[in-house]
């Protein structure tokens, strides 16, 4: 799900960088408006490490394999910190392991960051409603929905940037196959988010309120 260097045309690459810069600026502005902007930095740093390592966990979905994304978890635990944390994680993934690229850092940041913020917004909407079962369902929906939104953005960006020399029909089939391979991942991440949030609600609910 990381788009590497050299895959997208220059226009999409620049647009991705601009969009990521815009979303990050809004996020930082919202963080700065908090009474203590430093308060959640430790949690953001630790979640950045989790996000960074998650891309190394491959789940075989024959005939391919996918890796964890954790956009939903990042958004629901970090709130506005999610976007800068994801960008830092993506930077290290690109530099250390070649997952993604530096020129596509903006596009990948949007693909991973927007679903995280969408999950955060969803959590804000349903916060305080229903019982534990309702919380688990909404957490699952946010986690799985973040993966689906990321896959939709990834697919849209790739289809918009197909070069003329490529066999478009073949590439579309390959992209569709990859998107379908992420359906099991959406279920897995939904369950992970539901489990983590359920655990935090029991042992440390203030962590969720802080986000």
């Amino acid at each position: 799900m990381h788009i590497p260097d050299g895959i997208l045309p220059l226009s999409l690459t620049v647009a991705g960088l601009a969009a990521a810069a815009g979303v990050t600026a809004v996020s930082l502005w919202r963080i700065k408006a908090r009474p203590d902007p430093r308060a959640d930095v430790p949690r953001a740093a630790l979640m950045t490490a989790v996000f960074f390592v998650a891309s190394l966990v491959h789940i075989p979905v024959p005939p391919t394999s996918v890796h964890l994304m954790l956009s939903g978890l990042m958004g629901m635990l970090l709130g506005w910190f999610a976007m800068p944390a994801i960008l830092i994680g993506l930077f290290f993934q690109a530099v250390m392991f070649g997952h993604g690229g530096l020129t596509t850092l903006g596009v990948n940041g949007v693909i991973f960051g927007l679903p995280a913020l969408a999950a955060f917004g969803f959590l804000c909407l349903v916060r305080g409603q229903g019982g534990p079962a309702c919380h688990a369902v909404t957490a699952f929906a946010a986690g799985a929905g973040a993966v689906m939104l990321a896959v939709a953005l990834f697919t849209a960006v790739l289809l918009a940037g197909l070069p003329a020399h490529l066999d478009a029909a073949t590439e579309r089939r390959a992209i569709l196959a990859l998107a379908l391979a992420h359906l099991p991942l959406a279920v897995v991440e939904g369950l992970v988010v539901a489990a983590v949030l359920g655990f935090l609600r029991r042992v440390s609910p203030e962590l969720l309120r802080a986000a």
Partner: peptide, 23 residues
């Protein structure tokens, strides 16, 4: 890969510990 990942994880933990100190 393991060593590289450990370095980044340690950098994140160090950042968390640094900002955990109150002014």
């Amino acid at each position: 890969r393991l060593v590289l990942a450990a370095c980044v994880v340690w950098a994140c933990i160090s950042t968390a510990l640094y900002f955990r100190r109150r002014p």
